[in-house]
Simulated assay, not measured.
Amino acid sequence: MQHSLQNEHMVARWNRMFQHLNALEVLEHTLGSGKTGRVALVSSFGAESVVLLHLLSRINTHTPVLFIDTQMLFAQTLAYQLEVTKRLGLTNVRTIRATVKDLQQSDPDNRLHDTAPDHCCDLRKTRPLQQALAGFDTWTTGRKRHHNGFRTGLEYFGIDGEGRITVNPLIHWGANELNAYMDRMELPWHPLLRRGYTSIGCAPCTSRTTAGEPARAGRWRGNDKQECGIHFVNGKALRPNRPEATS
């Protein structure tokens, strides 16, 4: 509890002090200040992920990158993860998956996403990530305010449910800025991005978006669901997704 309170005070101070920093400066502070402990970057290797990964590669290619393979991702995402990792020279990408035992017990037919998408996200994303993050004090994400919903009020620094520091260097970046950066730096685009997938998650729960729709409109379309549950605001999960919390 003491460590968590210290982090909360530190995060509040940083958000006041560093509100005018750019994304690279926020990431440099996170990795080099000596006050964030053990740091990992969590990446989906989705539509816009290469921007934050490229910024990371300009500072430290050995930083642990946690890639959550739900085993329901598009084949294009798996290929893209390998391409980006090689292109940027990332040397410490760790693939995180649910255990075979957990999948056989909770989703033996791979259809849980049809009947209980929150439980599916918990099984395949939230629990594996929380286990992987147990060895870290801080984790960095690619969340942005332009994704709307809960994300419009994001700040650079936050706290997760375990008292760890969360860092969001790209909160001010919009779609045009992200696309321009990818082109300027000659970074590879996710193969599905130009086909109308503006936010890319698991194949069964991701669809194309049309002009004028929010970037994340294609995620869990037709469902009263905006988040997978791995992210937090003020220490609380954006959507309760454990079975005991949603029953």
Rank of each mutant, 00 (worst) to 15 (best):
Q6Y: 10
E8N: 10
M10Q: 12
W14Q: 11
W14N: 06
L21G: 11
V26H: 08
V26I: 15
L41K: 04
S44Q: 04
G46A: 03
S49T: 02
V50F: 00
V51A: 02
H54I: 11
S57N: 08
S57P: 04
I59H: 09
N60S: 15
P64H: 09
T70Y: 01
F74C: 05
Q76H: 05
T77K: 00
L78N: 03
A79W: 03
Q81Y: 03
V84D: 00
R87Q: 12
N92L: 11
I96D: 02
A98Y: 06
V100P: 00
D107F: 02
D107V: 02
P108H: 06
D109K: 13
P117K: 10
H119F: 10
Q130C: 00
G135S: 15
T138K: 04
R145T: 12
N148T: 14
R151P: 04
T152R: 15
Y156I: 09
D160F: 06
G161V: 12
G161L: 10
W173C: 05
A175K: 05
N176E: 14
E177S: 08
D183A: 14
W189H: 08
H190R: 00
H190Y: 01
P191H: 02
R194T: 09
R194V: 03
G196F: 11
G201S: 04
C202R: 00
C205F: 01
E213Q: 03
E213C: 02
E213V: 04
P214L: 10
A215T: 14
R216L: 07
W220T: 01
N223S: 14
N223W: 10
K225F: 06
G229L: 04
I230F: 04
I230L: 12
N234H: 13
G235Y: 12
K236E: 12
A237K: 14
R242N: 11
R242V: 07
A245C: 06
A245R: 10
S247A: 13
